[in-house]
Write a protein that binds this DNA or RNA. Sequence first.
RNA 1: GACUCCGUAGCUCAGCUGGUAGAGCAAUUGACUCUUAAUCAAUGGGUCGAGAGUUCGAAUCUCUCCGGGGUCACCA
Length: 576
Amino acid sequence: MHLSEQEIIRRKSLEEFAKLGINPYPADLFEVNASAREILENYERQKSDYRQISIAGRIMSRRIMGNASFAELQDETGRIQIYIKRDDLCPGDDKTLYNTVFKKLIDIGDIVGVKGYGFTTQTGEISIHVTSLTVLSKSLRPLPVVKETVDDKGNVTRHDAFTDPEQRYRMRYVDLVVNPHVRETFVKRTQLVNSMRQYLNAKGYLEVETPILQPLYGGAAARPFKTHHNTLDMTLYLRIANELYLKRLIVGGFNGVYEFSKDFRNEGMSRFHNPEFTQIELYVAYKDYHWMMELVEEMIERAALELHGKTQVKVGDKIIDFKRPWKRYTMFEAIQHFTGIDISEMDEEALKKTCNELQVPMDNTMGKGKLIDQIFGEKCEPHLIQPTFITDYPVEMSPLAKKHRSKPGLVERFEAICNSKEIANAFSELNDPIDQRQRFEEQLELGKRGDEEAMTLDEDFLRALEFGMPPTAGLGIGIDRLSMIMTNSPSIQDVLFFPQMKPENPVAHMTENDFESLGVRSDLVPILQKLGITSKAQLKEMKASKLFNDVCGLRKKMKLDNVKNPTMEEVEGWLK
RNA sequence: GACUCCGUAGCUCAGCUGGUAGAGCAAUUGACUCUUAAUCAAUGGGUCGAGAGUUCGAAUCUCUCCGGGGUCACCA
């Protein structure tokens, strides 16, 4: 294993700890009675409460001045400065704990527990005067060191911030330690989910769990991930939606069911797409899509209030206001509003002509519904920044939605669009089993023509509908997309702890064992590693005389005085 | 999948009309008892993402590959 200089130094500290009889990974619990934020908030008012503070966290910076030092301790709630004075930490003659343990063996990133009392420094910072220090976990890798300066106006400048997206996503644990706003984002995401859950629970709806491994995937148009069950010897799919299972539960007599579900779609990745993502789906019996719009407005307005204390949310350079009521357009109205063209009576030919006039890209495989959607996507969606309901979609694109009660060719469906992206999708659910079977069959036709995302026919779902499903309103909300808006995050990767990434390329390295199997003495291994030898094949191609020279030369350069040079015979032996 | 930009020390970055790798922070050693991007002095640290090519000579030019970002396409 290749270690950097700093890693080697930290590992050597472990040996020093052992010599001092200190376990840098103690098993004992460490009693904590305060948090950084709590102390900073309450100390001025309640000084007497902070005479015996016990707190634990990570050392984030150190300022050592001889026999006294300041350091910053970071716990879950934030950072607090600690003050360590040699003679207060070590009242007796033995100053090892200060001189050796704190000053030499503890590094930035180490996790320690301290006990002490609160005080205010001469420059006015609330701090902890440390009387006892315990190492709780030694950190063997150097943490990125991020420093901050605050100017007169209170603007914070971060120096050397840990910003490389690849590193941040691959090592989210490091990201969370050094980038406080990242923690905030994820806390907000959880608050969002909690807010919605509480809202739905208060209405008496039941949170349920349905299968992730499904023999047939359905409920959406997407390509699935495929897997195999050995015992049953059958193909299973990771769900792309849970719609059809939740509807079965409505058939079974529940009035309201919802599920926060991880869904999986085997498609392209982008700033708005991760192969696994979270949706909430909700189904309520005896309701329709008008009713559902009210619920969505109320639920999301409430979430915004709970997260931000107001209905306005800053997203990029825009302010998005979730205050009810949201604007509503039918799809035709929206298109008329943004293009001035009324397409409501147009047939396929007229729509194609309109696409050409508007310079909306299209091709001849597109049917009426797809053309309408295309115009909407090009000409309307980019302008819909404030939350807006778009209603009444073409039937061709919505095989699970009920036909519109009065407008032929349309379904009772709405999407909520916000910041030009769909955040919610809902229908009056199709509960007519005969109609549903026809729609599935149309999908099968599309599938035969090569549409990889066409829905499959789920015979058991149809059987359930044939037993009778009450009129039902159904809803799906993309939690990741909504989280992006609520946390002002430009990429979906910023609201997923561990976004999908390609695996890291393991750098080929020969281990000590690999070298020793060739007869290389262990004390010579670092020299060969330093030479950049990463494979046996590479080594075997080298000339013995050159290798001998290189090794002896490097031994001198690396100042490995107590390592004996190999003999020429030895080197020849490695290459056999 | 297409286009485009990026990959140099633990972190943030400079070096790129080819000539043996630099800075700040971090680290090491020393000084310093209220500092806060602490300060001062000294020191060490790099397969310049990987491979191949051009060349006397490549971090730098060319090609291929790997990883990442962005835009587009796909994706209700």
